[in-house]
Design a protein around this nucleic acid. Structure first.
Lengths: 336, 336
DNA sequence: CTGTTAGCGCTTTCAA
DNA sequence: TTGAAAGCGCTAACAG
């Protein structure tokens, strides 16, 4: 660790002012080819890298953004993260990774740290709260994008999943199989996505002229265990159900396991459909029919929305809704 | 977006010098309680946050580290990332997430960007190359930790998995089941972990007095598809094999699928053991016996090593080797 | 205990 | 096309 090479080191060695070096590294046109050439050579020789910190202080832009996710080890969010990082990288931005651990207090704290770091923008994924304190910090960022969670007042550009249509497609597919007694493992009652998926389910059922019994609707935690428990409860009370539409793939895997324990054959006795299409979905037995959510794409879109804001461009569509696609596998096959 | 509140704004409002404010925000003792109180009140009222950028320029430390992973959406690395981020956060560091996409050129580029951002340290996960150019950039960082990949000269503190012992345990378990014809799906020939696991396998077999035929050793890409293909090849040439030790869980899942296609019952006809214990492992059918790698723990250890370097402490153990644990499930159950 | 001065490495503005 | 001066917001070093 020797001292960093600075812009004035380069300037001296090239026999120019540091301003000229600055012009060269920023690709300004007003430098003579000769001078530029000489400066570039010195930069090459010395291995000079401009300090983004000093530049950030001078320009008050850091080419840095913050990404807040509940948990990066959740495959749903790590895919989104990949999309964000890839697009950010292409545009010369570095990304701070912050886990909020679903903890509102920590969510605030990471936002404070991002504020101190002077990020140019923040992408918030799966945000849970919207307290005044939260609203307050958010206001202080130059740009904000929300992913998978709508603020009540739609105050920020947002990337959403078309949960309603996705659920309709999924349930429609089940109905096409000839099943009519379709239960739903809704997921958590407070979840925005869960409620959208539920309403898609209800619309599909209603559209087919089937009246849904209250008991067919079962809330659960969005995990394998949650799905397993909920399925056991549901099938105990309503053994006549011949299909289950699940909040996500993890819940669906729980449902598969419960059906195994209850000796219900899938799909013959009961069909099962998930949501998300995480990696797992294709690999369980039976392979899961599910609604694919384009997560990497969501990340890209989110970063693009952020970039536009940071460039001061107007955002035509403040809410981008990405489409899902039904992936048909063995847990709810196509009936021919 | 109004102008940021700066340290001198606070100083003026509190009727002190900015130096005193600096002392307060850095918790220096030499400030009178009264003054401190007054300054804190102004900070509270104004919502002042010190600029980490300005501070970074002044101190040449940024409280920021870089984390380079091949792919954050790979669950192996996203778990490590979680461990790193959690520990970093506790110590007041923010983490730049960089995907290298297994691309040596991009790996270099992200390191350059991290250098410009003046990170205090870098954690490199699953690094593939060690070209002179790479060595060169690395030298310019104040602190470096390697994860899951040893540089030939052990020049940097490193967190490794005890692949050798893990493989020995796994194969030992298979042998205890009474199986003697154990094939191995090694993984990629260039992979350091793969070679360590292979040597653990060979030692276990030799220790049991079993001579391994060359044909039992099958290289493959470390994916489900790779495992599937390799298994088909292997079992075609060596149908007598009664167990497979796989490079990782994905390969093992591929093996399970191949066995399904070949009508080989697991574990009766053939036992299958994986490595890593990603969350998938418990959810496939049959559930996978596998060697658990404590990934979050690895991330924590890596960050701790980095912290010690950044504090200028001596590193007693330049290579930390984390232990694996055999998780026995149905694909290779315990024989009682 | 508190304030003053200088400077971190860059860009912006103005002048040449 | 080039350079000089000032300043971004903070801390280090010194003085009082």
């Amino acid at each position: 660790m020797t001292r960093r090479v600075t812009i004035s080191d380069v300037a001296k060695l090239a026999g120019v002012s540091s301003q000229t070096v600055s012009r060269v590294i920023n690709n300004k046109p007003e430098v003579s080819p000769k001078t530029r050439q000489r400066v570039l050579e010195v930069i090459e020789q010395t291995g000079y890298r401009p300090s983004a910190v000093a530049r950030g202080l001078a320009t008050s832009r850091t080419s840095t953004i913050g990404m807040v996710v509940p948990d990066i080890s959740n495959p749903f969010f790590s895919d989104i993260a990949r999309g964000i990082e890839a697009t950010a990288y292409d545009q010369g931005y570095n990304v701070f990774l912050c886990n909020s651990n679903e903890d509102p207090e920590r969510e605030l704290e990471v936002l404070f740290s991002l504020e101190e770091k002077q990020v140019d923008g923040v992408i918030l994924c799966g945000l849970r709260q919207k307290t005044p304190a939260l609203q307050d910090v958010l206001k202080r960022f130059p740009a904000i994008v929300l992913v998978n969670r709508l603020m009540d007042d739609a105050s920020y550009p947002t990337v959403m999943v078309d949960n309603h249509k996705g659920a309709q497609k999924a349930v429609g597919h089940i109905l096409n199989m000839g099943r009519k007694r379709v239960g739903i493992l809704v997921g958590p009652a407070f979840s925005y996505s869960a409620n959208q998926r539920k309403s898609g389910y209800l619309d599909a059922m209603e559209g087919a002229g089937i009246s849904v019994e209250d008991g067919w609707i079962q809330y659960c935690t969005p995990t394998v265990e949650g799905g397993e428990e909920a399925t056991k409860l549901l099938l105990k009370r309503h053994p006549q159900l011949d299909a289950l539409f699940c909040f996500n793939d993890l819940v669906a895997v729980g449902a598969i396991q419960a059906c195994g324990a209850l000796n219900r054959r899938i799909p013959n006795d009961i069909a099962i459909v998930g949501f998300d299409d995480v990696y797992l979905a294709a690999l369980v037995t039976p392979a899961l029919t599910t609604c694919r959510v384009p997560r990497v794409e969501m990340g890209r879109q989110a970063m693009n929305l952020l970039l536009r804001q940071m460039k001061g461009q107007r955002i035509e569509t403040p809410v981008i809704t990405v489409k899902t696609r039904l992936i048909i596998r063995n847990s709810a096959p196509k009936v021919t």
